[in-house]
Amino acid sequence: MSSITMVQAVNDALREEMRGDDDVVVLGEDVGINGGVFRCTADLIDEFGEERVIDTPLSESGIIGAAVGMALYGLKPVPEIQFSDFIWPAFDQITSEMAKMRYRSGGQFTCPMVVRTPYGGGIRGGHYHSQSPEAYFTHTPGLVVVIPSDPYDAKGLLKAAIRCEDPVIFLEPKRIYRAPKMDVPDDDDYVVEIGKAAVRREGTDFTITAYGAMVAVALEACEKAAEQGWSGEVVDLRTLLPLDEDAIIQSVTKTGRLVTLQEATKFCGFSSEISAIVAEKAIDVLEAPVKRVSGFDVPFPYTLEHVYMPHADRVLKAIEGVMTY
């Protein structure tokens, strides 16, 4: 065990998988000598050389497209998109090519690969360094979408993603890149299974679903709710697609109340899907309407970022709403 940050966890996962499999390569902007703008690929070039840690020209569609070609040939590329806000030139490559290769070729061709990209607000990055694009990708059949909420999961899920047979969008919540630290296993074989949610706090009165940096906000809100005598359960989704529906239904069946939490914009957000699934499959257990806490339906603001971002008190209001309905 080592006590490490999420950045170190990502770096360790990449290093271990590259040591274990010569076909794993990293490519992207500034990932080589600079080690990535967040240092997630730091020092990999020293150990694995320029051939496997590739500084590419500045083109997101080029990075993902080249990785698709590499994956077709049998490599296991892990391209980095510097900020998820810059991913859109590669949207065609991701949704029309990477995601559909297996299906459209009748299973003759596949391109398993992991697109890593930092996402989310809380670093005063304005709208081009802060957005949460997960719903664009969860709307695309063929993609696996994974979001860790702490260093332990970041390492274990990334290692599992690199070993996955399907293409994975791996969104890293950069707000918690450098804190908190956490004990993470050094064991090469340790992975966190894709497709399984985790209950981060057990409770009996209400459920909060969250992912990424919002898990900590959900836990903080539950602390505050406990002062009022309300017992909250937090389900960290970890994988958004394919979604662990059972974990959500199980928790809501126990508590009877649901607050969904995300920092992305609200309309057609991922939480809306959770709300719909619960409405379809478990409306009988609900004792109050579902409440969604999210960012607002505006471009991500700079100066008023702290107002935009969901915080514990705002979540507490929603908890009060479902508890006093």
Partner: peptide
């Protein structure tokens, strides 16, 4: 496999050739 959007496969060929070289 062929896709309908034009030109998207040009960079795939480059990526695959990079892999062949590697």
């Amino acid at each position: 496999s062929i896709s309908s959007p034009i030109g998207t496969h040009i960079i795939h060929a480059t990526g695959l050739a990079m892999a062949q070289k590697l």
